[in-house]
Design a binder for these strands. Sequence first.
DNA 1: GTTGAGCGTT
Length: 288
Amino acid sequence: MSIEYVVVSEGEHDEPIELPAEEDGSLLLSTVAAQFAGASGLKFRAGGRLRGLRLADERVLPPADGWAAHRYFCAFPRAAERAPRPRCSDLIVLGLPWKTGEDAVRDYFAAFGELLMVQVKRDAKTGLSKGFGFVKFAEYEAQLRALGRRHMIDGRWCDVRIPNSKDGGSAADRKVFVGRCTESLSADDLREYFGAFGQVTDVFVPRPFRAFSFVTFLDPEVAQSLCGQDHIIKGVSVNISTASPKRERARSALLGWGVLDAPRVFSWPPDAWAHAAPPDAKPYLKYE
DNA sequence: GTTGAGCGTT
């Protein structure tokens, strides 16, 4: 007896993959979801019309004329059912050219979705741009599109972020620390290398040179999955670990050395041991 | 040489 395979793709025009049917001729929804996360069913096109397949007891049932007669693609829950969409926040736009004003910023970001607000921050006296501004979108999807990439505005690369004065540090779990970098590794090298693991939204390489960098991914799971690993990039063995905010690290160090009292409830970060000082270490304070 | 730039007159 041989296994029957069902030809399924994510969207109608995506590359198909063969999924094994069960002995009773049904296809387990879990088999579909294992390849296409979030899929809730299957559909196919018959005579130009879309047709959905029956679902019974977490199993997709074959059409009347059998699996082999069609190729299938996934049905997903409506966006509104997956989760209530978070509200849009103001977004900070960093790195604007000095000459760029509201009109150019509005023209640029209008391509991502309807804008509710555009500001370029200026010096009160001179009226000159401070090189950053704020935008707010009407739709959360537009905000996601704008956050997921860099932006070339009037000839300069600009970054769009959630401002840290509101809801600060939301990028922490999407960011990794890349240690043991050499000067030969450029931001573009890192972007290209890590782009193979998932969409990279930011790369920070300190200048002047220091032997580390930060890489931020769109997907926190991608970032977390890389932590603890060593990777060889252009012949350089780098070490990847969690990126923790400067404030947190300073505080952890002070607590660890007994300079500060620990609060009654305090949980060490998973890598706290790695930052612990030897018993004879002198406290080192760096003031901002 | 293993922890980051810049963050909002109203």
